[in-house]
Nucleic acid binder design. Structure first.
Lengths: 342, 342
DNA sequence: TTGCATTTTGCAATCGTGTTCAACACGCTA
DNA sequence: TAGCGTGTTGAACACGATTGCAAAATGCAA
């Protein structure tokens, strides 16, 4: 008892022990007061709550996680979180977590493999119940370790499907080929694809599907990848594609961010009229795509639906087995004004 | 020993005990192997590391936090995380945490008071070492509880300075009045302010400072607040201000997001030429302000510097006392093309 | 070999919680 | 009053780690 008193001075957070002493009850009583469905008399509960309030007591979830199997922590691993699409995803996920009473740990990786590995290790260190990977390609071995540890691993938009984890995707291939037909129906013939050097699986899939559809239709297309997935790269792509003599009359940008840069280059560097001289299709449907300056025709990633689905998987792990192991969402085309009406 | 064996089956995460058994050493040895600066022989270290690797062991930071006073957890509380400015801040913060070896817990609040309170409680539940509040106004009492628990509370851009926590701000007042002079020097006389109904302290400060500067110069200004801080509100503001007969020839938008909406309304709804007929100044310097479609003259919030400063505060809590308790950063004007050159 | 200083190692206590188990109090019926 | 069922309560034991302390092992010089 003396030793506890001694410690009291150095430890600043209030413990259940201190609440118990103040309320003149046992520590178990305090624990039960804060445990859902435990048996406590009303008088006891009031005494405890009062003491807890006076001392500023808050249950230590870290300690609680030691005995209960579920830490209620979910890790979100991503890179370039400030980017419109990623930010929207993080927003939806963190809001979802809040809703189902879990807490999100956000790990911002540098994007490279080593950094994704380190992030996944942290996930294990904090005994996260689930991990959502937005970007980066962790090794299959480490993912296996997570799963063996009882962790749920959810990969978003990684078309290279590892078999252990749950995959959440968008039908990139379908959208890619659909994008081609939209442009072809609009009468475009000299078509370009604006992509990035990132080489992210889902971007590659869109690119390939578009290319395949063009090949099927007997059209040669031109692909440029001036840099990472950014506004600046889109702008650079515009400068490259439009400075030559045979300007394209249409472009499929694998990302809205690229599309915004591309459109700006077209308009402000070359005075090109969109959509009269040049049609543009994007992908993601970020907020800016709906802004009047762009009015970009694009494919909407159902971010909210995807997040909801993930919440359901986390809430009820059994759902992982009843639902198919990889969930594929449809990217709906959103018609605005960057493509000529048929 | 048998009971431990019995538990082994149900518990999926590997514990130090299991590693010790496999390596044929004591639990302490395992702990010391993973503790920086502990005394372990090279032979022992190798044995332990090998067993740990084979079993897929990862130190349980939750349990570790029980004895060590520092949980290495930092909470970030914010609303509307998907918004460009907020997303950039979250990005900078989470990257900083990663750099200094801490882990970020992200709590997305609904923006109202109750929700901010709940978030702060979670912060206590997880024994976070520090909390960064991006938005929302938690009660002073709860903030006090956090501080009494040894937690560092850091408020960003809340000009209503509570005295307990550390305040990180931008010199909104200075920028607000500077904005007015930029527009006046450009020859504008019919000046409007586009603000939001959010009533965030920093927005109010900018608005007031601008108004005061105008009053000083003997100019009447018009203020509109059509809704929350968003692109749509900026657009609505444009429709309100420009549909009348006496159009303003300048506007100070207290946020870049508002400015983007406002500019789009001006151009695409009313065919107004910016900056010839209408000058616009924003605030924040979000990515989109630099896009060619907007080329918005604005004030840059030094987000990276602010995040760095916060990391320094977290790494060395003593710094909180040597450094002034509220740190104020300068918002540098960024000249682009939405204001006529003098 | 002995003596001494230095490093390694294991035991046991500790952190703050949840939960089992037995003891206890209480109200009701026979 | 005895007997019984129902709720409450507290002591004790995990959970998975770190660490002070003392014992053991090692290195080195005489």
């Amino acid at each position: 008892m003396r030793s506890i008193r001694g410690k009291k001075a150095s430890r600043l957070f209030v413990s259940a022990q201190q609440v118990a002493e103040r309320a003149g009850v046992s520590r178990s009583a305090v624990s039960r007061t804060f445990t859902q469905g435990a048996s406590v008399s009303e008088a006891m509960r009031r005494k405890v709550l009062r003491a807890a309030d006076e001392l500023g007591y808050h249950v230590n979830h870290l300690a609680r996680s030691l005995i209960q199997e579920d830490s209620r922590i979910v890790c979100v691993i991503g890179a370039e979180i400030g980017t419109p699409y990623q930010a929207r995803m993080v927003e939806a996920l963190s809001r979802g977590m809040q809703r189902i009473g879990r807490i999100a740990m956000l790990i911002n990786t540098a994007g490279n493999q080593a950094s994704a590995e380190a992030a996944l290790r942290q996930t294990l260190n904090y005994r996260a119940k689930a991990t959502v990977v937005l970007s980066g390609a962790p090794s299959a071995a480490l993912v296996r370790t997570c799963i063996n540890s009882g962790q749920q691993v959810i990969l978003i938009n990684r078309d290279d499907q590892l078999d252990g984890p749950t995959n959440i995707m968008v039908d990139n291939a379908h959208a890619g080929s659909e994008a081609f037909h939209m442009l072809k129906r609009a009468g475009c013939r000299r078509i370009a694809v604006v992509s990035s050097t990132a080489g992210t699986p889902s971007l590659v899939t869109r690119e390939r599907a578009f290319e395949a559809a063009a090949g099927h239709a007997g059209l040669e297309i031109r692909i440029v990848r001036p840099g990472p997935t950014s506004y600046a790269s889109g702008f650079a792509a515009g400068q490259i594609l439009l400075s030559g003599s045979d300007r394209p009359d249409a472009a499929f940008c694998v990302t809205d961010l690229l599309a915004c840069g591309f459109m700006d280059a077209a308009r402000y560097e070359f005075g090109v009229d969109i959509p009269r001289e040049l049609c543009v299709v994007g992908f993601d449907d970020i907020d800016q795509a709906g802004w009047a300056s762009y009015a970009l025709t694009t494919f909407r990633q159902p971010v909210e639906d995807m997040a909801d689905h993930i919440m359901r998987l986390i809430e009820d792990p059994a759902a992982e087995f009843t639902v198919r192991e990889t969930a594929c969402f449809h990217a709906l085309p959103v018609w605005r004004r960057s493509v000529r009406p048929k």
